[in-house]
Computed example of a mutant assay.
Amino acid sequence: MPGRFFLTAPMTELAAAVAQDAEPIADEPPRSNIAPGEAIVVLTQAGLSRMRWGIIPVGRVNARGRPVMETIVNARSETVFDKSAYLGTGRAVVPMNGWYEWTGETRRKTPWRIMPKTGGFLFFAAITDRWQGPGGIAVDQVATLTCPPSGDVADIHHRMGVILAPQDIPLWLTGDEEHVMPLLRPWPDGQLTVSEATDLNWDAP
């Protein structure tokens, strides 16, 4: 949706794909199992950097004024501009080479790997926030956006991440709400490959 993803390509390739300097993330190793709570590579207006995947909603409230208690890993694109819990968030892009989903019953789940049919990167729309911790600690955080699934993934999950075309990344990062809303839609059918990930040696999240 994603709950786990992978970024295994060299950072020089990623930097070239988004026309950015690779130096801030040059030491990022190939990672095949990236989970919420970990530091991940992101792209913002300032360039490539790292943020914690999952927004700790300290001080954020819902429409009824009640505190948001659960860490926000994925946010629904349909309400991201409406819910008070997201007020004041920034925007980012989370690059990846693909992500994982699982189907089936607990302890009998089947893992699936989703990748771009032509290889390369997928760029997920995301929102950002900064957690101010004790002693002046500041942690930049990110949550990916989700939308209804494309035909490629509908059989394995009822949601998917909002994927941006490379040429739409600047608009997502800088555009106003009216102009970015059309970007928050399922990825076109036929652009992704879904295959059983029989090589995974770790359980579903």
Rank of each mutant, 00 (worst) to 15 (best):
A85E: 06
G3Q: 10
T118V: 12
G135T: 05
M96Q: 02
V68S: 05
I127G: 00
P2Q: 14
R76M: 14
F6G: 07
P166R: 13
R4H: 09
R159P: 01
A35R: 11
K109R: 13
M11E: 09
W131D: 05
I169S: 01
L122Y: 06
D155Y: 02
I72P: 00
A9Q: 15
W187M: 08
P134K: 12
R159G: 03
G59D: 10
T174I: 08
T103C: 15
T193V: 09
A17L: 11
E101L: 01
W202E: 15
A138R: 15
S150H: 06
L171Y: 05
G104W: 05
W187V: 08
T8C: 14
I40F: 03
T79Q: 12
G65A: 08
M11N: 12
A9T: 13
P30M: 09
M51D: 04
P205E: 04
L145N: 07
D203I: 12
P29F: 12
L7Q: 07
F6E: 09
V142M: 00
D189M: 07
A154Q: 07
W187N: 06
D168A: 15
G47P: 03
A39E: 15
G161Q: 01
E23V: 11
K109L: 09
R159C: 00
A125V: 03
R31Q: 11
E196V: 09
V68G: 08
C147N: 05
F5K: 00
C147H: 06
R185C: 08
P170T: 07
P148E: 14
P29W: 13
T128E: 08
E70I: 04
T174Q: 15
F123Y: 15
P111F: 06
I72A: 00
R91P: 02
P10N: 15
R64V: 03
P67H: 07
E178L: 15
I137H: 12
M69F: 09
P2N: 14
L171Q: 07
R31C: 11
P30Y: 09
S150K: 03
P67N: 08
P116T: 00
M115T: 10
L48K: 01
V73M: 06
T110H: 11
G90S: 10
V180F: 04
P36G: 06
P170W: 09
A126F: 02
D155S: 09
G151V: 10
A85H: 00
M160C: 02
T12H: 13
I156Q: 01
R4Y: 11
G136D: 05
P149V: 06
N201A: 14
V41Q: 02
A126Y: 01
W187T: 05
D129F: 08
Q132Y: 10
P134Y: 10
T198D: 12
P166H: 11
V162G: 00
R64P: 02
W172G: 01
S195T: 09
S150I: 01
A26T: 10
A22P: 13
D203G: 14
V58C: 06
A143F: 01
L173V: 14
T174M: 12
